[in-house]
Computed example of a mutant assay.
Amino acid sequence: MDRGPVEGSSRAAGRVEESAAWHLTERCLAATPEDGARGMFFQGVVGVVGFVQGEAAAAKCLAASGLKELNPAELYPVTRFLAMSAEATRLLKPQLGDWAQSLRYIGTQATVDFLASMFGRDLMQAAGRNPRKMLHHIVENYRVAVSYGERGVLWTGDHSARFVMRRDFMPAPYHEGVLQAALEAVGAQDIQVHGRQLSLLDTEYDVSW
């Protein structure tokens, strides 16, 4: 039996589902010209795609941002980062399984890159090997890394917390990767990070270790 139309409909449905999950257009419309993210995060996305899919895919990823070159310390419009990240999830999906896992992977690399920067080295020194200090100080460092949003930590136990983000443009899976990598960097074990999308730009994460 010819199943071509059915398979085609399935692929189209998958694209619609992914687009709905991302809400990319709505996120871009919610941004203002003052909302920016540093170039190091753009470089991290390009690097991830290049590592997994090769140089041609990395070039597509960069082209999606509308930028030709990147300065790691410069703030670029978050709408460009959203466009780049959406293209990256499309390119990474065949290897990583779905858009959410691709976003987690990108978020993990974003943290690795940030912690290797001059901003991140200060964070690591302040946090030492203490997961609680890391979560506390990462709130302040978000203000250095991006120009939008508010973050806070509510402690729910000696080894657990609720990390709250308001007016942040990336979907929850991205920051699951961010928080996982940040805690791993200070030696935390048995890390669990579960995000909930409260609204388009508001999320909270239950974190434990």
Rank of each mutant, 00 (worst) to 15 (best):
D2Q: 08
R3M: 12
R3G: 05
V6P: 01
V6T: 05
G8K: 12
A13W: 13
A13Q: 11
G14E: 13
G14N: 10
G14A: 11
E17K: 07
E18S: 15
W22N: 07
L24G: 04
L24T: 07
T25S: 14
E26N: 09
E26G: 11
C28F: 03
A30W: 11
A31P: 01
P33G: 12
P33Q: 10
E34T: 06
D35T: 06
G36Q: 11
G39V: 01
F41N: 04
Q43C: 01
G44D: 03
V46E: 06
V46A: 08
G47P: 00
V48F: 11
V48Q: 10
Q53K: 15
Q53W: 01
Q53G: 07
E55Y: 12
E55F: 06
A56M: 06
A57F: 05
A57I: 01
A59T: 10
K60E: 08
C61V: 09
L62N: 02
L62G: 02
A64I: 03
S65C: 01
G66V: 02
L67A: 02
K68M: 03
E69N: 10
E69S: 14
E69K: 11
E69A: 14
N71A: 00
N71D: 15
P72S: 05
A73H: 08
Y76F: 05
Y76M: 00
P77F: 01
P77I: 01
T79G: 02
L82T: 03
M84R: 01
M84W: 03
A86G: 03
A86W: 15
T89K: 04
R90F: 06
L91T: 09
K93R: 15
K93V: 03
K93A: 13
P94R: 11
L96V: 09
G97C: 10
D98K: 09
D98M: 08
D98T: 05
W99K: 12
Q101E: 15
L103Y: 15
L103D: 10
R104T: 10
Y105L: 13
G107L: 08
T108A: 09
D113H: 08
L115G: 10
A116P: 04
M118L: 05
F119H: 14
G120S: 06
M124A: 15
M124D: 13
A126H: 11
A126K: 15
G128L: 04
G128S: 14
R129M: 07
M134W: 07
H136T: 15
H137C: 09
H137M: 11
I138M: 15
V139M: 09
N141R: 08
A145E: 14
Y148P: 01
Y148N: 06
G149I: 11
G149H: 09
L154C: 05
G157M: 02
D158I: 02
H159Q: 13
S160A: 15
A161L: 03
R162C: 13
R162P: 00
V164H: 04
M165C: 14
F169S: 03
M170C: 06
P173Y: 07
P173A: 04
P173V: 01
P173R: 10
Y174S: 02
H175K: 04
H175R: 05
H175E: 09
L183I: 09
L183F: 09
E184T: 13
A185H: 12
A185L: 10
V186M: 12
V186W: 13
Q192M: 04
G195L: 08
R196S: 13
R196F: 07
S199N: 07
L200A: 02
D202N: 14
Y205L: 05
D206H: 13
S208Y: 11
W209H: 10
